[in-house]
């Protein structure tokens, strides 16, 4: 920082901490994006007080205007905490960034009162702007990261949820597949199917693709891979739920499914499976 040292700003902040906190708090709470239902007034005040303390402390020891020094570590940790917790609570990015940006006005007010010389005032305002912008950007970055973590966790959960392996009968497994089959899902499907084959000792697995919207060569290849892997474990596969349009696509694409038993419906496949395992369902005569 140039002529007007950061420690001078820090001193002013420490002197007028109360006024700043009051103004900052009211700016934050009056901001139209503020979600009162997600966070309490008390929490906001606590976060603000803690931030301001660390902020002025860091300003005092600031060495360059890149905000990369150790003196900013505490500030960064606090900001990361704040924005991560807000990301989890469901705040929007602008809500989260407002936490920092709404500090500008109170600081400007204080600066105007304390630095009467126009040139110095301009310098101070500029310094404050630069620092707060950087911190604001950092907040947004952490917020983004937090959201991405949430998204990837949900994706993982969806993967696990959407590929159940159910035991239909003794020795017969069914895999009702729903949604697009990509390679990562095929991997999950394959692993859970093979594990289930080991656990239940099943000899037949029915892959039901009723819920798969499109079947292209890649999906077909994934299906065939699953079938081959199950066969290596000693279980035969039946593919069921092939809709008329999908049957047409498969033939048009020239995908060879002759090595697998295919059936139109899960019920048909189940009958074949019962036959293969030498079982029978009979109606009870009343």
């Amino acid at each position: 920082m140039t002529n007007v040292g950061c420690d001078q700003i820090a001193q002013v902040i420490q002197k007028d901490e109360k006024i700043i906190l009051e103004q900052w708090g009211s700016y934050q709470l009056s901001s139209f994006t503020m979600r009162r239902d997600l966070i309490s007034e008390n929490e906001v005040k606590q976060e603000s007080r803690k931030f301001l303390q660390l902020f002025s402390g860091a300003l005092q020891n600031n060495k360059n205007d890149k905000l990369t020094g150790n003196e900013w570590d505490d500030v960064r940790v606090l900001l990361a905490d704040v924005s991560l917790s807000r990301a989890k609570k469901g705040f929007s990015p602008s809500d989260t960034a407002t936490f920092i940006f709404s500090l500008k006005q109170p600081l400007f007010n204080i600066a105007r009162e304390n630095f009467k010389d126009i040139a110095i005032l301009a310098e101070v305002l500029w310094n404050i702007t630069v620092i707060l912008d950087k911190l604001g950007l950092y907040t947004t970055e952490v917020y983004q990261k937090g959201r991405e973590e949430i998204i990837s966790r949900q994706q993982q959960e969806m993967l696990e949820l959407s590929t159940p392996v159910v035991q239909l009968w003794e020795g017969i497994l069914a895999l009702p597949m729903i949604g697009t089959l990509d390679s990562s899902r095929t991997q999950v499907v394959m692993e859970s199917l093979l594990q289930e084959i080991v656990d239940t000792g099943a000899t037949i697995a029915i892959l039901d693709i009723t819920g798969v919207p499109t079947v292209d060569t890649l999906v077909a290849q994934h299906l065939l891979k699953t079938v081959a892997a199950a066969r290596l474990m000693g279980a035969d596969c039946i593919i069921s739920g092939i809709r008329p349009q999908i049957a047409q696509t498969i033939v048009h694409l020239g995908v060879d499914l002759t090595s697998v038993i295919t059936k139109a419906t899960l019920a048909d496949a189940f009958l074949v499976a019962l036959e293969r395992t030498k079982q029978k369902i009979v109606k009870v005569a009343v």
Partner: peptide, 26 residues
């Protein structure tokens, strides 16, 4: 007999589907 799931997946990924070999779980 007795191929482990991980081994089965590896063989399939290697393109070795052991066509014509009979397999069983145990």
């Amino acid at each position: 007999v007795g191929m482990r799931p991980a081994v089965a997946i590896t063989l399939v990924e290697l393109g070795l589907t052991l066509d014509g070999v009979r397999t069983a779980l145990n």
